[in-house]
């Protein structure tokens, strides 16, 4: 770990004024700093800021950026109205990590790509221009959607998948005092030629909250497939909210983990479903759309058929129609 200046922010404006890297739970940042994958010169500790409330607002919920993952998962409103979010959080990490990891920090998690983690390996995300060792290397956990020639990393968060299902918006405060709200779609970037840029967050900006809009209609589910029974990153995960009325799917929101460089959502999948009578054929068509551009890199090829199976099982569970 490189030496750094440590600054404890007492207020949000302190944090916005200080020029440096934000640390909250630290469960991923310190992990990476120990390996010198991350080498910030200054750390701004924001854990004393007053961003720990989950506030009910009109038909929505405002989750402070410092709300720990465990509190968010256990919040009675979240359990009742946004179960996909509770489920996703509880499927991630461990009890200890969820107690420390924060809502804002979880969104900022970096990939678990093993070549990114090892500073002796070339990696375009860590050191732009050095090349991607993962493409032709051991890429079992890496992406099949949204990849570029430069990078095939996956975003590891479970929580962010559920947030994407729920059309959450990220509240960001800038040093000039402005606040903007971004969807996860707007927030996360695809790797393209600049895999080192993962979000649109500008230097000095701070995530202050996440807003959940009115709960989606219908039933929600989060299903995660992993190599061991617990405490492992997703091979594939599916978060979903689906409503069926009068025998037809009226609303559908689906997002996927383990597949892409950001929590993946594809409006085309939902378009295929909405207005249809749920059936195995419709589910298959949704999978066709989702996976039309999917590409495996060898060790992760299995994710393509596995995603289809999990997607269909989740749709079947939520619509009550056999696959």
């Amino acid at each position: 770990m490189r030496p750094f200046d440590y600054v404890r922010a007492e207020t949000t404006s302190d944090a916005l004024r200080a020029d440096g890297r934000i640390i909250a739970g630290g469960t991923n940042l310190l992990d990476l700093m120990k390996l010198e994958v991350e080498t910030p010169e200054r750390l701004i500790d924001v854990t004393r800021l007053d961003l720990r409330e989950i506030e009910a607002q009109e038909n929505s919920l405002r989750i402070g950026a410092l709300v720990p993952n465990s509190d968010l998962a256990a919040d009675e409103r979240v359990r009742r109205d946004y179960p996909v979010l509770s489920r996703a959080l509880l499927a991630g990490a461990s009890g200890q990590l969820r107690n420390k990891a924060t809502t804002g920090g979880n969104l900022m998690q970096r990939t678990r790509c093993p070549y990114f983690y090892d500073t002796a390996q070339p990696c375009n995300k860590r050191e732009p221009g050095t090349g991607c060792q993962a493409r032709e290397g051991f890429n079992r956990i890496l992406a099949i959607l949204g990849t570029s020639d430069k990078c095939i990393a996956t975003h590891p968060s479970d929580m962010a998948v559920a947030m994407r299902v729920l059309d959450a918006r990220i509240e960001i405060e800038s040093p000039s005092g402005e606040t903007r709200l971004l969807t996860l779609d707007e927030f996360y970037l695809l790797p393209g030629d600049t895999p080192e840029r993962e979000t649109v967050l500008e230097p000095g900006e701070l995530i202050t909250a996440v807003h959940l809009p009115e709960p989606p209609k219908g039933r929600q589910a989060y299903r995660k497939v992993r190599d061991r029974a617990s405490y492992a990153f997703a091979l594939v995960s599916v978060g979903a909210a689906v409503n069926v009325e009068g025998g037809k799917i009226t609303d559908a929101a689906l997002a996927f983990g383990g597949l892409g460089p950001r929590p993946w959502r594809d409006a085309g999948v939902e378009e295929v479903l909405i207005g249809e009578t749920p059936s195995a054929a419709v589910f298959d068509k949704a999978a066709d759309v989702l996976l039309r551009d999917a590409r495996g890199f060898g060790a992760n090829d299995f994710k393509i058929p596995l995603t289809r199976r999990v997607l269909k099982a989740v749709l079947s569970e939520l619509t009550g129609v056999a696959q």
């Binding site: 630290g26 854990t47 107690n99 420390k100």
Partner: peptide, 15 residues
């Protein structure tokens, strides 16, 4: 009162 991984946090953050 809460369990955490003490390896993944800085001592200076626990004043």
């Amino acid at each position: 009162g809460r369990r955490i991984n003490s390896c993944l946090t800085l001592a200076v953050m626990h004043e």
